[in-house]
Nucleic acid binder design. Sequence first.
RNA 1: GGCGCCAUCGUCUAGCGGCCCAGGACGUCGCCCUCUCAAGGCGAAGAUCGCGGGUUCGAAUCCCGCUGGCGCUACCA
Length: 477
Amino acid sequence: MVRVRIAPSPTGDPHVGTAYIALLNYLFARQRGGQFILRIEDTDRARFVAASEQMIFDALRWLGLEWDEGPDVGGPYGPYRQSERSEIYRQAVDLLLASGRAYRCFCTPERLEEMRRAQSAAKLPPRYDKTCLRLAPGEIAARQAAGLSWVARLNVPQPGETVFRDELRGEIRFDHANVDDQILLKSDGFPTYHLANVVDDHAMAITDVIRAEEWISSTPKHVLLYQAFGWPAPRFWHMPLLRNSDKSKISKRKNPVSLIYYRQAGYLPQALLNFLGLMGGGMPADLEKFTLAEMVEKFQFERISLGGPVFDLEKLQWLNGVYLRALAPDEFLAQLQATVFSSEILRAIVPLVQERIETLAQFGDLADFFFRDDIAPPPEIWLPKKRTPAETLKITALMLEALEAAEWSHAALEAALRDLAAAQGWTAKEVFMLLRAILTGKTASPPLLESAVVLGRARGLDRIRRFLAREKSRPPA
RNA sequence: GGCGCCAUCGUCUAGCGGCCCAGGACGUCGCCCUCUCAAGGCGAAGAUCGCGGGUUCGAAUCCCGCUGGCGCUACCA
């Protein structure tokens, strides 16, 4: 019986890369009559975003990737949220500490920083120097008694080598000279990914770990952990990374990556899924358009091409168009009413336009930007009278950062924009008008912040990113 | 820098020793259809298969080296 899992981290919007890996895991499980598990990897309390978990559930369900076990549906191997499994990790660490496969480390971040600087200056691989491994038992007890904070580190045998098999690439070997004594338990008592992932995969009887290629370098640490615990390791399948058009790992800077965005921008889940299925091969080459069920039937993992595929929005858009045109008119209408013309959106827009309207027919004139995709205002709209294009673009980039960090609410957006204006020596009016131009394409619109909230975070941020991309690539006039 | 992974049209890919002076799709361009624009149909341009060595009667396909791209190099996942 095959058991696989997807283990997203609730640190923000659900990511298109998560959907890709989820799809692959789903296919693998369904093809083999196995189970597909959803586990929430919420051990990073610094980056934790409370609303994120629910958004992950919603986005994966929207795509139709149902899981057999998970935090919301339960299952025999729960709990499926790592923050609820602390005791399990603590016991696991005790085991490793007792057997000498892990050790307590009291080094301060400053010392570690210093050590890494020296190593990099000496052109050595950055690696913890095992200082605390040499601590006498009495010294360890004393430091603990003194209340010094500590972490648990994996004791990687030196010298040594770890060899493991990647099902798609064959044998991969790592000299231990390049494997760090990874932190397993953080000073806040939470495990790192490496520990939690191994402990949970074993506890949840995961047979095949299907994850992104970026994990290859840390797989030796995982294999060492399985050995330290005396557990059999699962099979590893590392999938190619989705890329931006410049071939770098897909990122929100260069590409929309939020599944919320794709849903709100009017992509059909079956089209997005189909497109993801095209990434990296796997399906018979003569097929371009196929359903999830057909993928379960025909997708072959052995056929996956290992070169990282560029996530080509234009092709996704074409495919989405194919799906949209194939809809029966009634279905098409239903889609429209479920998304861009939902009564929720309409209801939210009403208070923004009602007080500015003289005939109902003007609704479109006032609210057009909610229903348009490409807003491309000319410089006479967005360029403040007293500013240059260069400084305007610069503050727009800062604005994007500030808004990405802010909660998408009227108060938070307003605070972020006013702070930005003050910090950059712009008037609030200039900053607000700039954002108005980018979001609405006009100099006069319904109230900006209210409009931004209705437009939504995903589409709002996307408009700013697209604006920046467009203006940066525009040859200076 | 170190380590690892990868390498066919701009992009997604087919090809797993002869069927390939490399096929399909997106995008681009042209023509047709047409009141317009799309869609659709037809067609074109587009890859010395990253480079250099081998192995072989024969290599895009196998091996080695180089180069390049990417990833990792955190008390993030």
